[in-house]
Design a protein around this nucleic acid. Structure first.
Length: 667
DNA sequence: GGCTATGCTTTTTTT
DNA sequence: AAGCATAGCC
């Protein structure tokens, strides 16, 4: 215990030792935030607090995992394991599963992921006869999500925008009759649980005597309310964050929450961590020069613990291909010189399309790399199909999944039959799944379709009655075999190579199942498996315990928050990309600046920022302008002739008549 | 009902 | 550039 405290500076130690009452730790980048949280937990345990009484909430699984490991190494694996450390979402799911009946929630609800949500929005709009031209389902979904994150009901939204309000309402009905909750609902239902089921709320408050929240600046409305409800009157609440690193405003996060903590929790102790143990003076100076352009923020003076260090490199290249070649070349050069390992290097970017060029170059040069948050695997058609089958077995009322696979592989269920079933479902106000139980009575459905749907339902039913337990991998394989999915893959892809590739994705799911069973030997279940995949618990590491593999890291700036690397390559520092064009339009420059700040402060010793002369966007080569942040970094004004270009093309109005762009304007 | 061709949109960031 | 949806043909 003493040794834990000895390694801390004065402020950090105060933060650790102030265990009672509300505490706000304002921790600038690299000031040892994670260390404070982990040591604080260790300290609580040393003081005799029961590990079950400690709850720590994070925003990403990565952060949760790291925190668990670090506490584990301080106090021992075994004791560390009993601590509750998790993302808000996973914590809420667990609580809801345990206490679903208390708020009339079905115990076996499924969780809608992003594509499920879009599908549900489309369904809702179809029900309301709202053409998709009125508003893109994607945009609609974003609006609904934002409303939920602001704790607004459909009625409240309708006052402001009737269209969105109505779809929001219908969308909720769709989810409910599919026994599904979306990501936002997980938080909202948890809040409802805390408010409406008093006995349950008491249990939680009694259980968690000490509550900690990481990255508090990213807390949104529902999360804040949950924290408040959990902390109760005891208020042993410690939140840690940095307003300069608030980058989730688009998800409903409210920076004001961290600024108003003392008001929300009177008597709160505020502790500032201002010594940076991560970066050189050069890097820190650059970061400070950028962030000082943001008007509303807590003034902070970060002091570097290290010397000046190397200059920051800002490099212009011809295009994204040269950018990738240059960066990878530089990495390899330093590896060859022996002053860096691959795992010390990170390539950071703004959008998910940027890594493509880098992947190509890395692969051609045989350089191992890890692409973090490479959502792509779960976006693969085969993976989504298989997952849909599994979801359907787990929750036979899941409408989105049913519609996805009714005719995949083709069973003679055509559009017309589906439309008739859909109409019948809407008429009866139930999910299609239920309507189809009496498919023979639905007019307009072809006879082949009737037989096919009955068969399919029987198959699903048969598997649904099984409890796979330890044999989950075999169960998944049998289900996929039963519906003839392999034959479908073979039918679709004539080319042997792609065919094998596609089928490998399916096999990867079998592997996931095996991993999952191995990790949860006691309580393996289909529902748990799907949940883990949806919330990305286990899914993100196909290469198992090779976390220490020597490889270059590629990730978005958002994913990089909280991490550090010796060498950072911040690529694509161009107007339209960073700051992103959409943000410029929507007045989100300050958040983009914080994003840039996050990127710069990830670097410990070497920082290289690149920007291109031109870049392909939407299949068209477009001239790039250096990011305004590159001038801020040098305390300069943009030169004459510089323009803030690169906004979204044609600035399509957010809603109402998504006008088709004329050919002329695209040329 | 199934398959193919054409044309249209897409690119913000995550649980 | 690529993936997805619709239309039009078998």
């Amino acid at each position: 215990m003493r040794t834990h405290l000895e390694k801390l500076n004065k402020q950090q130690r105060t933060a650790v030792e102030t265990t009672e009452g509300p505490v706000l730790v304002l921790a600038g980048a690299g000031t040892g935030k994670t260390r404070v949280i982990t040591v604080r937990m260790a300290h609580l345990l040393d003081k005799g607090v029961n590990p079950e009484q400690i709850l720590a909430m994070t925003f990403t699984n990565k952060a949760a995992k790291e925190m668990k490991e670090r506490v584990g190494s301080l106090v021992g694996r075994k004791r560390g394991k009993i601590l509750t450390v998790g993302t808000f979402h996973s914590f809420c799911v667990r609580a809801l599963r345990e206490h679903a009946p208390a708020i009339d929630l079905p115990k076996h609800f499924s969780i809608s992921d992003a594509s499920d949500q879009i599908a549900a929005v489309k369904g809702a709009m179809r029900d309301l006869h709202i053409p998709e031209e009125r508003m893109h389902p994607r945009a609609m979904q974003a609006q609904i999500s934002l409303a939920k994150n602001r704790l607004q009901t459909p009625d409240q939204v309708a006052e402001w925008d009737e269209l969105i309000g109505r779809v929001y309402q219908k969308y909720n009905e769709h989810l409910r009759r599919s026994k599904a909750l979306d990501f936002d609902d997980l938080l909202l239902e948890m809040l409802r649980l805390m408010r409406e089921a008093d006995d349950v709320a008491q249990i939680f408050r009694a259980r968690y005597q000490y509550v900690m929240v990481d990255e508090y600046q990213d807390t949104n409305g529902p999360q804040y309310e949950i924290v408040r409800a959990l902390a109760g009157l005891r208020r042993n609440l410690c939140v840690v964050g940095d307003d300069d690193q608030s980058i989730y405003g688009w998800r409903g996060a409210d920076v004001k929450k961290i600024l108003a903590f003392e008001k929300d929790f009177p008597g709160a102790r505020v502790i500032r961590l201002e010594t940076n143990y991560r970066s050189t003076e050069q890097i820190l100076g650059a970061a400070n020069r950028i962030i000082k352009n943001n008007p509303a923020r807590h003034e902070k003076t970060l002091r570097s613990h290290y010397g000046p260090g190397d200059d920051i490199k800002i490099i212009q290249v011809d295009d994204e291909e040269r950018e990738a070649v240059g960066v990878v070349g530089d990495i390899l050069k330093h590896v060859r010189l022996g002053d860096a390992k691959l795992m010390d290097c990170a390539i950071l970017f703004r959008t998910a399309v940027q890594p493509r060029a880098f992947e190509t170059v890395l692969r051609s040069r045989d350089v191992p790399y890890i692409l973090v948050g490479g959502q792509s695997f779960f976006d693969r058609k085969e993976v989504r199909d298989v997952l849909a089958y599994l979801k359907l077995v787990s929750n036979p009322l899941d409408e989105v999944s049913l519609l996805r696979i009714v005719n995949c592989p083709p069973r003679g269920v055509g559009k017309k039959s589906i439309d008739c079933a859909l109409a019948e479902a809407t008429k009866l106000g139930v999910s299609v799944n239920r309507a189809i139980e009496n498919v023979n009575d639905i007019p307009g459905v072809s006879s082949t379709a009737k037989v096919a749907m009955t068969d399919l339902q029987a198959t699903i039913q048969k598997f649904a009655q099984e409890e796979p337990g330890q044999d989950l991998p075999g169960f998944v394989q049998r289900l996929i075999a039963a519906v003839g999915y392999k034959a479908e893959v073979e039918r679709c892809y004539a080319d042997v190579l792609t065919r094998n590739q596609r089928w490998q994705a399916v096999e990867e799911i079998f592997n996931f199942a095996e991993n999952y069973v191995r990790r949860n030997p006691d309580d393996a279940s289909l529902g748990g498996f799907l949940e883990a995949l949806t919330l990305k618990h286990s899914g993100d590491e196909p290469d198992k315990d090779l976390g220490k593999r020597d490889a270059v890291t590629l990730m978005t700036l958002h994913a990089a928050k909280g991490l550090e690397f010796s060498r950072v390559y911040l690529v694509g520092a161009e107007e339209g990309l960073l700051p992103h064009g959409k943000s410029v339009q929507e007045d989100g420059i300050e958040e983009e600046r914080r994003l840039m700040y996050v990127g710069v402060t990830r670097a410990k010793f070497h920082l290289t920022i690149t920007h291109t002369k031109s870049r392909a966007r939407y299949g068209q080569r477009v001239e790039s302008m250096p990011s305004r942040f590159l001038f801020e970094i040098r305390d300069e004004l943009p030169p004459k002739g510089w323009r803030a270009t690169g906004q979204m093309p044609a600035a399509a109005p957010a809603r109402k008549g998504a006008r088709k762009r004329s050919k002329a304007s695209r040329l």
